[in-house]
Simulated scan of single mutants.
Amino acid sequence: MASFFSLTALLGGLLIGLAAMIYFLFLGRVMGVSGILSTTLSRHGFTVWRALFIVGILISPWIYSLFAEVPVAELTNNKMLLIIGGLLVGLGAGLSSGCTSGHSICGIARLSPSSVVVTMIFMVAGGVSVFIVKHLLGL
């Protein structure tokens, strides 16, 4: 079973890399989900391809479920924790001028020093957040 998930992770990574390469080649921009989403929600930035990109992200777990069992994600029932987490992710994406997909996948691939630094900050902040929530708050 582990080898199946390794294979699907490899295929998923290859598809993300291919999509990022196509995006860069055709639009000359670095693909980042937060930028695509925020632009789509603005009145002047809405385009069909952006809407399809977001629909693709939303339906991809369903498509995956047609071929394999979707791993169960463990979420908290604490609504305040979810709200705070969402706000912190949005704040981080705004402060770093991009999200994990833009910096960690595309930025590092084009050898951007700022993306390497931002990715390290994302990883450390994520680890610290898990430590605080799991070990100090016990949630």
Rank of each mutant, 00 (worst) to 15 (best):
R50V: 04
S42C: 03
G90Y: 02
C106T: 08
G56P: 11
V124R: 04
I105E: 03
R43S: 04
L27N: 11
T100C: 04
G45Q: 08
I63G: 07
S101P: 00
G94P: 00
L81Y: 09
T119F: 00
F53W: 09
S114Q: 05
M123S: 12
S97F: 09
G90H: 05
H135N: 11
H44N: 09
G32H: 05
L52F: 12
E74G: 06
R110N: 07
T119R: 04
S129W: 06
S65N: 15
S129C: 06
I84L: 12
V133A: 06
S34E: 02
T100H: 06
P71N: 06
G28M: 03
G102E: 11
Y23C: 06
V89I: 15
C99A: 08
V117K: 14
S112W: 03
A125S: 12
V70M: 12
L136D: 03
S65M: 13
H44Y: 10
L75H: 10
L27A: 05
V117M: 10
G92Q: 09
I132G: 00
S104C: 11
V128P: 01
T39A: 11
S42E: 06
T40N: 14
L111M: 06
A68K: 13
V72T: 12
I108Q: 03
A73V: 15
E69I: 09
G107D: 13
I132Y: 04
S65V: 04
L95S: 03
M80C: 01
T39I: 00
P113F: 12
A73Q: 12
S65I: 11
H44D: 13
L52H: 02
I57E: 09
A51T: 08
I132A: 01
Y64T: 09
S96W: 07
T47M: 05
T76K: 01
Y64I: 08
L87S: 14
S129K: 05
I22Y: 03
F131W: 13
L37W: 08
I84W: 02
F26A: 05
L95Q: 04
S96F: 15
L81M: 13
M31S: 07
T47I: 10
H135A: 00
V55R: 10
L27R: 14
G28P: 02
S38L: 06
I22A: 10
S129T: 15
L37Y: 11
V118R: 07
V130H: 00
R43G: 02
F122V: 03
L66Q: 15
W62N: 01
G90C: 02
V130Q: 00
